[in-house]
Design a protein around this nucleic acid. Sequence first.
RNA 1: GGGGAAGUGUCGGAAUUGGCAGACGAGCAUGACUUAGGAUCAUGUGCCGCAAGGCGUAGGAGUUCGAGUCUCCUCUUCCCCACCA
Length: 815
Amino acid sequence: MAEKYNPRTIEQKWQQRWEADELYVARDDDPRPKYYLLTMLPYTSGDLHFGHYYPMGPSDTLARWKTMNGYNVLFPMGFDAFGLPAENAAIQRGIHPREWTYANIERMRGQLKRMGAMFDWTREVVTCDPEFYRWNQWFFLKMFERGLAYRAMAPANWCPQDKTVLANEQVIDGRCERCGTEVIRRELEQWFFRITDYADELLDHSGIDWPQPVITMQRNWIGRSEGVEVSFGLDAPVGGEDEIRVFTTRIDTIYGATFMVLAPEHRLVAGLTTPDRQQEVRAYIEQSSKQTEIERLSADREKTGVFIGSHCRNRLTGEDIPIYIGDYVLSSYGTGAVMGVPAHDARDFAFAKKYGLAIPVVVAPPGWDGEPLKEAYTGPGTMVNSGSFDGLPSEEGKQKIAEHIEAQGWGKSTVSYRLRDWLISRQRSWGTPIPMIYCETDGIVAVPEEDLPVILPDDAEFKPTGESPLARHEGFLRVDCPKCGRPARRETDTMDTFMDSNWYFMRYVDPHNPERPFARDKAEMWMPVDQYTGGAEHAVMHLLYARFFTKVVRDMGLIGFGEPFKRLFNQGQILGPDGQRMSKSRGNVVSPDKEVERWGADCFRAHLMFMGPWDQGGPFNTAGLAGIWRWMNRAWGVVLEEPGYGDADDGSTKELRHQTHATIKAVSEDIERFGFNTMLARLMEFTTFLIHLRDSGKPVDYPAWLEARDSLILLIAPSLPHLSEELWERTGHSYSVHQRSWPQYDAALAATEEVTLVVQVNGKVRERIQVPAGIAEAEARDLALNSPRIKEGLDGAEVARVVYVPGRLVNVVTK
RNA sequence: GGGGAAGUGUCGGAAUUGGCAGACGAGCAUGACUUAGGAUCAUGUGCCGCAAGGCGUAGGAGUUCGAGUCUCCUCUUCCCCACCA
C-alpha cells in the first residue's frame, strides 16, 4: 500500500525547492520565443481574499502550460499600493500609511507564494516604492513638456467645515463622512491629462483580440457623436461675446427650438441675468452647487430651471427665445448650453410642459395629423414648419440645414465626445507627488529631472483633521524655485492611482533600472503583453487609460507599439456562498487561507477552476471541493499503484492508447480556450478509465501504461503543480516536471473508430446504431432505413426525403 | 433612461459549425466493504407513466428535415454607465 497523499508536506517541500532553484525566474537572454502573461496586480488592502485567488489559479495554469509548450514565459506579480484605504487605516491606527501598506504586502506576498504560482518574484513591482513612482513623476514631466498635462479649474467635493476635498466615497448622502456637514461642489485648480487628443485613436480596437463587450463599453465611454455647433445671437454683447454656442446632434429640429438652457456654471450667466431675476438665479445656482453625485444619479428627477431675464435669437426662425439655466445641463459636455426643442427631446418636453412653453412640431411622425404631441417624438420623419426645408425627410434635412448654417457662418459640423480629459489631481497624501513648483516670480515651474524623485515625507502626521498632511508639512512644502532660487512652494496634490496601473507592466520588463523607466531593448524583447487577465470592472477606466498612456509613451519614442495588451480576458467575479459579494458586514466571507490549509493549494485552486467557466464567476461553495479531493487521491493512487503487466490483448491496448491520446487532445484544446472546468472533467474521466483498467485484473501492456501514466502527470502539471511534481519524482523521473514538454497526441490514435449513428424519423430519435467512423453515406442510409425500429416507426408512411449528416445522423422525413 | 451579460435536473455546470439535451462533479437513494477515513467500491438518479410511450433547456411565436443554439416579442436576474443635448 502506497503512502497517502498529503498536500501539506508536499506543497511546502516543492515551493521551497522551486524558489531555491530559481525555477521561475524569467531570463532576458533565453532563446525561446517570449510570452508575456499578465494578471492584474492586487491592491494592498490587507489579506488575500477570494477575489485574488479566483484569477490567479487559472492564469498560473496558463503560464505553466505555455512554458511546457516551449515559451520563455514572463509571469510577474506586484502590488498596487497607493490609495485612500491606506490613509484611512493610518488615521484609524495612528501610524504612517507606509507601515500599514508594507505590512500588508509582506502578508500578501506570503499568501501568494503559498498558492504555488510560478510568479517571478525577482521582478516584483511595488507602486509606492520611490524607485517606481519616481518614473510616474518623470512621465508627468514628459507629458507636461508635450502639452499633454495642463492645469484647469474643475469641481471637487468640498467640506466647508473641515476645509478639505472629499473623494466620492467619503460623501455619504450628500454629507461629509467625518463631520456630517453638507458637502458642496467647489471649483479648484487641478491637473489634467489630455486624453481627448487620443479619442479617435482610442476608438480603434483593430489588431487587438479583446472581448466584444469591453470594446463596446469603451466605445460608449468615449461616446463620439457627430453634430453641429451652432450659435444663437445676443442683442447686446456680454463680456465681449455676442452669441451663445450650442452643440446638437439634431440640427434638423432647430426650427422647433423655443428656449435656451445654460448650465448654472456657464460663463455668460452672470452677464445675461437681468436685475429683477438676480435673487432667484443666485439661489438656484447655490442650490445646484450642492447637488452631489448621488443626487444626480436619479435621471428621472424633475427637470428644473430658472428664467434669467434675457433672450437670444434663433437665427433660422428669426425669433427671440428665452434663456434659462437648468442643472440638467452639464457644463462639462458639449458647450454647456442646450437649445430646447420640446417636441423632439424628452427632457425638453418635460421642461416646456412645466414652464408653459410652446411645443411646435418640426419633424412630423409618420401619419401625424397635426394634433399636439402627448410626448416628445424623437424618431425620423418629415420636416414641417421649417421654412424652405419643409417636406424633406429629417435625415436629409439634417444635412441641408448644416450646409445652410455653415454657408451663413452661424456654425459648423463638428464632433463631440462624452470622454473628458483625465483629471489626475488627488487632494490626498498617499500617492505620487506631482512634481511641480509654484513660484511667485516664475509661476508654474517643473521640478528638474535630476531632482526626481520628489519623495513623500516619512514624518507627515496623519491625524483626522481633514487637512492634507502634505499641505501642512513645512519640509515638504517649502522649496527654492529651480529658476530664480527664491522661496516657492510645492504642489501638494498627488496623482490618481490609475497613473500607476498605466504602465506598471512596462516596469516588469526592467524592474531595477535606475536610469530609465525601462530599457528599450528589454521593452522590445518582452512587450506588448500577449495575454492580460483581470476583472471586467476595469473595462473602461484602467484599460482605457493604459491604452492612452501606451500611445503617449509610443509618441515619446520609448516603445514601438501603441496597444499594451494584445489579448484580454475578463474572468468573472466570485461571490459568497449566499450569492452576494463577499464582505465582512454580510458575514459571508470564506477565508481562502483556511481552505488552503485544509485541502492544500492544488485542491483549492482546482476546485475554483472546476466550479464553472472562468469568465462566469458565481457563488463559492465548499461542497464540490470533496469531489476534487477524491479525484486527486484517485489520481495519486492510479499513478503509484501499478496494474499487472503482461501480454495484453490488442483491443485493450489499443483502447488504452486511444484514451491517452484522445485525452491529450481534449485537454490541450480545452486549455487553449480557457475551458478549465471541462479540462478537469476530461482528466477525471481519464483517471477513472485507468483505474477500471488496472482493477479489471487483466494484464496490461507495459509501455502503453507508462505512456498513459506519464501523460496524466504531465497533463495535470499546469493545474496541480505540487501534486504533479511529487508524482513525477516518485515515478522515477528527473526534476522538474515543469520543465518538461507538453505531451503531443497522435491524431490517428486520438480519433474514434466507432461512432453512434442517430436515426430519426421526422426529427425524433428512433434508433442508435454503432457504425465505423468512416462509414459511407449509402451504407449509413441503408442501415438506417432497414433498421426494424425505423420500419416500425415509419408504419408504411411514404419517405419524402432522407437527411444525412456524415458520421452522425440520418433523419427520415415522411410526406 | 442607455449599454452589456445571462436564464438548462435538487445544486455547480456540459453540449466546436443548428444534429443523441443533462458530460464531469456535488447531493440524494440502495447495496457491498470495515472501518471512524472529510473513506472506498458498485448501481441508480430530468419530469409524468406499471408499461409502451409522452413531455422537457424562463414564457410565447417564427425559420428549419431538425432549435438549448438562429430571428422576433414578453418576463426575470446580474453587471456597468447614468440628465450626453
